[in-house]
């Protein structure tokens, strides 16, 4: 969607400030008054970027969840541990989307140059480290003669533990860095909040526990993982909703119209349906389902699986709504 497509009432120009819900704010800003600045939607980052952020977080988070909860028997795919492979594939997909979105994809390695100042560079390095170390770690599934196994961290050999630790750190960076990338976008005030990286971490963890639950239930392997994973799911869902709530309050109180226009667009404007569906179906209902599952262990499997699916989908939808609500004050109408 381009800037010219903005038609909803929340997006107004400074020229029409008398009709704007943000009139008082705009009038108080001398530069807006003098130069007739406009509120425009950012035109570049939409669904592909949402997919990139979501896939990266989900993949890296799934790897982390497997090792934090010591999930050893979630099944295999082509002889490799399913959850680790899912993690690697999802991060790989995210990386591929990122590369394909570049204006010059053949120059992608140049993106590793400035980790001292750019979060995209740090994230790109983390992606490569995660993919390489993670791929080596799961190799014993194909090459049994290698001197380590693909067991989870606590049960693994020292060499494997080193690899898991490196991949784990890279995964932690991967789930955080998209939030930092958004935070760095100084002009898009909806994203310029310290709560955005926290939100990305919470989203990644909740959706990756959801995916892990789904995989375990589908493979009829939930067993002893039910309680710890359900509790972890509940905690991360509560954290996700709590951080989202604080984030909206934070952005609603920022000085200047762009952040508030973004919140308006997200909560009541063009992206409201995506936002509310993702919050209610993606996080609130899974929370209720998890509570019910904890209270009634007999029906826990299907409930947790449904909650997992909803959370995974809802997380993607939230990313999309948040990106499309990015609004900046610009001299260009």
């Amino acid at each position: 969607m381009g800037a010219n497509d903005l038609t909803e009432s929340s997006i107004t120009t400074a020229r029409t400030r008398s009709a704007s819900p943000y009139g008082a704010v705009l009038s108080s800003e001398s530069t807006v008054d003098r130069f007739s600045l406009h509120l425009v939607a950012q035109p570049y980052w939409h669904f592909p970027h949402a997919l990139w952020f979501w896939a990266m977080g989900l993949g890296a988070g799934t790897f982390m969840v497997r090792h934090v909860f010591s999930v050893r028997d979630a099944g295999t795919v082509l002889g490799l541990p399913l959850l680790d492979v899912l993690g690697l594939v999802l991060v790989g997909i995210g990386g591929l989307i990122l590369i394909l979105d570049l204006g010059r994809p053949e120059r992608v390695l140049k993106a590793l140059r400035r980790p001292d100042r750019s979060w995209i560079a740090r994230g790109a390095i983390a992606d490569f480290v995660f993919l390489i170390v993670g791929a080596v770690y799961v190799l014993p599934g194909w090459v049994p003669s290698l001197p380590w196994t693909d067991a989870p961290f606590l049960e693994a050999e020292l060499l494997a533990q080193v690899m898991i630790a490196i991949a784990f750190l890279a995964a932690a960076l991967i789930i955080a860095y998209p939030g930092m990338v958004l935070y760095e976008s100084l002009s898009i005030r909806l994203w310029h909040s310290a709560l955005v990286p926290a939100q990305f971490i919470a989203h990644a963890l909740s959706s990756s526990i959801g995916l892990t639950l789904l995989v375990l239930v589908a493979g009829d392997r939930l067993g002893d993982y039910r309680s710890p994973l359900a509790i972890g799911f509940l905690v991360t869902l509560v954290a996700t909703l709590g951080i989202t709530h604080m984030y909206l309050i934070d952005r609603s109180h920022e000085h200047g119209p762009a952040a508030r226009a973004g919140v308006e667009r997200l909560v009541r404007g063009k992206m409201a349906m995506h936002f509310w569906v993702s919050v209610v179906l993606g996080f609130a209902i899974p929370m209720v389902l998890t509570l019910v599952a904890l209270a009634s262990p007999d029906s826990a499997g299907p409930l947790l699986a449904i909650g997992g699916v909803l959370c995974v989908v809802g997380s993607l939808q939230f990313r999309y709504a948040q990106l499309c609500s990015g609004i900046k004050v610009s001299p260009l109408g």
Binding site: G103, R107, R113, W119, I120, E184, S185
Partner: peptide, 29 residues
């Protein structure tokens, strides 16, 4: 400047901000 992952965007000591187009990957950050 800080969002450029390649260092394509640079700032000279005299304040002029430029782009090395041969280093730009087109990420649009």
């Amino acid at each position: 400047l800080p969002v450029c992952p390649t260092g394509a965007t640079y700032k000279r000591e005299d304040g002029i901000v430029g782009i090395h187009s041969e280093d730009c990957i087109g990420c649009r950050s």
